[in-house]
Nucleic acid binder design. Structure first.
Lengths: 127, 127
DNA sequence: AATTATTACTTGCATAATGCAAGTGAAATG
DNA sequence: CATTTCACTTGCATTATGCAAGTAATAATT
């Protein structure tokens, strides 16, 4: 593979990207509260590395100086097809996760991904 | 995600699956010789776990009793879309890896994946 | 038939990655 | 101005990984 793909090859990075993409997570706290078992130092490390690889970026929250807002970059949102296929694969082969989401993806993959990109672009314009 | 997706979240598993899918790797030795830095115990561990998750399976080589032949299961070959999107993403955002392969994938994703499945099915019939 | 080589591992040990609890500094809240 | 929140960092124990060496089973060579 290559450097960036290796970045994805760990327990948390894909999860972080997925939840930014599909659940709108944006802050350290949201990840921390959501993932059981993630260590604080590891979350900090992964966020920094994802920034380093150009997959996400961070900026201070204009409304709360303590917070950092993380966002997917273009490179990050371009992982939408990978994540989508991964969710569909998991759904097909065992999971019973978010059936509504899976339905949306399966019915019209292109449309689903276009919507993901649309939401992302709207977020960008605010930024 | 789920259990199987977590299995993919490590440094070697996706690489193993990719090389079984796209490069026709089938034996411990092929992986061992190809991956610099993989430890023998880790390769053994990953192969066993991938079997455990139903992503690959193994059988003795009928022509050489020392060898085990590993093959992707249906669940494993169903990762083709994930791997394809990952290779395309990497190619788009930095790598210069296998340009010929990337061209094939980009030009007609469906056709490419159909061919991957076809090769796999042919291998199954021999088994 | 006996020796050597190959294959797919396992074992032991050192190093690196991770998890957990506690602590820090800056900004917000009461 | 004391307390809380937020995004971390630090120290230490546990787990995972890398490396070198060893093993059992089969195959090839002499």
């Amino acid at each position: 593979m290559n450097a960036s793909v290796e970045m994805l090859g760990d327990r948390w990075s894909l999860l972080i990207i997925r939840d930014m993409m599909l659940r709108g997570f944006r802050t350290y706290k949201e990840f921390m509260e959501c993932y059981e078992g993630i260590a604080t130092n590891i979350l900090a490390d992964r966020l920094q590395k994802l920034v380093g690889f150009g997959i996400i970026e961070s900026k201070p929250d204009p409304e709360d100086g303590r917070k950092l807002i993380y966002r997917l970059t273009r490179k990050g949102i371009d992982l939408a097809p990978v994540l989508t296929e991964m969710v569909l694969w998991a759904a097909a082969h065992e999971d019973t996760g978010n059936q509504a989401l899976v339905q949306l993806m399966r019915q019209d993959k292109r449309k689903f991904m276009a919507e993901v990109r649309q939401r992302w672009a709207e977020g960008q314009s605010q930024a």
